[in-house]
Design a protein around this nucleic acid. Structure first.
Lengths: 302, 302
DNA sequence: GTTCTTCATGAGGTCTGTTCATGTACATCG
DNA sequence: CGATGTACATGAACAGACCTCATGAAGAAC
C-alpha cells in the first residue's frame, strides 16, 4: 500500500469541492486523471473510499478515515514548505553557537537578547559543553558559529573579527601586587592563579604571558563561573586574568584592583568563525554587526 | 515545492542508515537513484539538505528540519496503513447506529456493551438525533445500521429481523382500565396517552391500534425518556403503550399494571437495516447475533 | 424523453524516476 | 606514493506511472 501525499490532497479536495469534477479543477488536472487516481488509490487500499450511489461522489466510512489522516498531515507539510520558503527568503534559519571562552557569556547574552527580538524565527542555541572540537563541528553543520580568539582558519571557514580586548589582571586590594602599575609574568610566581577549567592553550594568561616567559604560578585553581572567580579574587584567595569586559562591575568596587598586563599592553582579537557561505545571510550579518558593537559598549562601561 | 512522502522516507532512511549507499539498500533501490532523488529534492527546496564535506553524507540544518517533519508524519502514515490493513482483515470497521425508536436504548446499550468488548477496534456510535431520514443516511454511509420496525427495504438495503415484541399497555394500578384483561382501541377514548415525542407513524399504538380504529385518545402528552413516561404513568397522570422489554422493572411493581393489547395480541418485528454488502462482515454478523439474542433475555426477565 | 451533470474507461503520449555504467573525490594502506 | 576501497555524482537510456483526450454510461433535472 503506497500512499502518497498526492492521494491525501485528492481526498481532501474531493471532500472540499464536494465532487470529483470540481476537485479536479481545484487541483489543476482533468476529471479523468482524478478518476483514474481514485481508482488506483482504492485498489491500493483494497476497498471503496467513495460512495458512488449518490451522484455527487461522497466519502465512504473508510474514506473518512483517510480524510482524517489527510487533515492531520497536509497542514504539517504546508507548514514545513512555508518554513522552507522563509528559509530561502532568509527570514529564518539556525544560529547554533559554540563558545570556546567561558567569559564570552558575559557579552554574548546581551547580544543574543537583541538578536532574538530582531529575528524571532531564527533557531538560536549556545553549545557550551565543548566536548567536541568546535571547528570540525562547524564543518559538519553541528554548529553555525564559533566564538574563538585562536585564528587558524581551515578552508571554507571564515574568521570574522569582532573586537579587540585586553586580558586584564584582577586582584584583591589587599594583594601585594596591588601597588604595581602593570603586571608581568614574574609577578605570578608567588600567586595562586584562578582560571576557567580549560586547557592552558585556551587561556590568554598562559598563551600570552606565562608560557612564553616559562613562568609557573605558585598554584592554579579553577572555577566554572566568572562570578565565582571574582568572588575568590575578592577574598584574596588568588588572582585572575580576565578579559576587560568582565571588569565593569569590579572597577568601581574598592575591594578590587585591576591592572594591565605589561610592560606592553597585551591586545587580543575575538573572532566569530562561520562557514564561508553563511556570512552573506542577512541574519548572520546582523548577528556579526551586533557582536562587533555591543561588547565594545560593555568594555566602555568598564 | 512538491514534497512527496517518498522524499520524507528518503530523508529518514539516510539519517537512519548514516549514508546514502546504505539508505539506498534499505529502500530497495540503487545508490544512483537515491542520489538523483536527493538532488531533485534539494532543487525543490532551493537549498542543500545534506553536508557533503564529511564523507558519509550527513543532514544539514535544513535537512534536520525536514527530518523532524518526516518523523512526525511518517508514523501517522504507517498507522493509517495499519488501520487499513486491519480494516481489510475485518478486525476493525465502523458501526454507527441510527435508532428510530426511543425505547430501543433499553436493549441497545446492553448489546453494545457486549459488542464493544468483543470488537474493541470498531468505531461505535449511536445517532439518536434523527433530524434526518434514516434509510437515505444508510445509503450515503452516514450511518451503518438503522434500528427500525418499519419494513420497507429500498434496493441495496437489507432488513435483518431481530426479534418480535408486543407493544404492551401500562397503567397505574389505580387506573380504571386495570380491571380489564386486555386493552382495545376504544379504551383510550377517556385516557391521557403518554408517548415519545415522535410522529404518529412511528408509534406502535397509533399504527397498530388507534389509527386503524379511528380512535383519538382524550389527550396526548410526550416525554423523551422511558423512565419519565413510567413515572408519569405510575402517578396515574396517563397511560402508555411500550414494547414489552421495557416492562421488566414495572411488572414486579404493585403500583403498575400491564396488559396486552387485544383482543388479538399485537406482535411486531424489530429489524436492523444495513447495507447489503455489510451483512457479511464478521463484526456486523456478530452485532446482529447479539441484537437477536440479548433483547429476548430482557423480555424473559419481564 | 431530452438534456445536463457527474463519473468511468480506454488509448495514447509525456515525463518522471529508475537503472546501468562510469566518473570524481577522498581516505587508507602496503 | 601509487594501489585500493569507499562514498557519492553524473549522463544516457529505458520503463512505467500518470496525465490528457475522446468517448461512454448512468443518474438527476426539466
Amino acid at each position: 500500500m503506497y500512499i502518497e501525499l498526492r492521494h491525501l490532497r485528492t481526498i481532501r479536495a474531493i471532500q472540499q469541492a464536494g465532487g470529483l469534477a470540481r476537485a479536479a479543477e481545484m487541483l489543476n488536472m482533468t476529471q479523468s486523471a482524478l478518476s483514474h487516481q481514485v481508482k488506483g488509490l482504492e485498489d491500493q487500499a483494497g476497498m471503496e473510499l467513495f460512495v458512488r450511489r449518490s451522484k455527487p461522489m461522497r466519502l465512504s466510512a473508510a474514506g473518512h478515515r483517510m480524510l482524517r489522516a489527510a487533515e492531520r498531515i497536509l497542514p504539517e507539510i504546508d507548514a514545513m514548505e512555508e518554513e522552507f520558503r522563509a528559509l530561502r527568503a532568509g527570514r529564518t534559519g539556525r544560529l547554533h553557537i559554540a563558545i570556546e571562552c567561558h567569559a564570552c557569556f558575559d557579552w554574548l547574552f546581551p547580544v543574543l537578547e537583541l538578536f532574538r527580538h530582531a529575528w524571532p524565527e531564527i533557531d538560536v542555541d549556545i553549545k557550551a559543553g565543548l566536548a567536541f572540537e568546535a571547528l570540525p563541528a562547524l564543518n559538519r553543520e553541528d554548529v553555525d558559529l564559533v566564538i574563538s580568539s585562536d585564528r587558524e582558519p581551515p578552508p571554507g571557514i571564515v574568521f570574522n573579527p569582532l573586537f579587540d580586548y585586553h586580558p586584564t589582571f584582577v586582584a584583591s586590594a589587599q594583594n601585594s601586587l596591588a601597588e604595581k602599575a602593570f603586571i608581568m609574568a614574574e609577578d605570578f610566581k608567588d600567586q595562586v592563579l584562578i582560571t576557567y577549567p580549560v586547557s592552558r592553550d585556551k587561556l590568554d594568561i598562559f598563551t600570552e604571558i606565562l608560557t612564553p616567559a616559562k613562568v609557573e604560578p605558585r598554584a592554579q585553581r579553577t572555577a566554572e563561573l566568572t562570578a565565582v572567580i571574582l568572588m575568590l579574587v575578592g577574598s584574596n584567595r588568588g588572582v585572575a586574568v580576565l578579559p576587560d569586559w568582565v571588569m565593569r562591575e569590579v572597577k568601581t568596587n574598592a575591594d578590587y584592583v585591576t591592572r594591565p598586563l605589561g610592560p606592553d599592553t597585551v591586545t587580543k582579537r575575538m573572532y566569530a568563525a562561520t562557514r564561508a557561505e553563511d556570512v552573506a545571510k542577512p541574519y548572520m550579518a546582523h548577528f556579526l554587526r551586533l557582536a562587533r558593537s555591543e561588547p565594545v559598549k560593555l568594555q566602555r562601561g568598564a
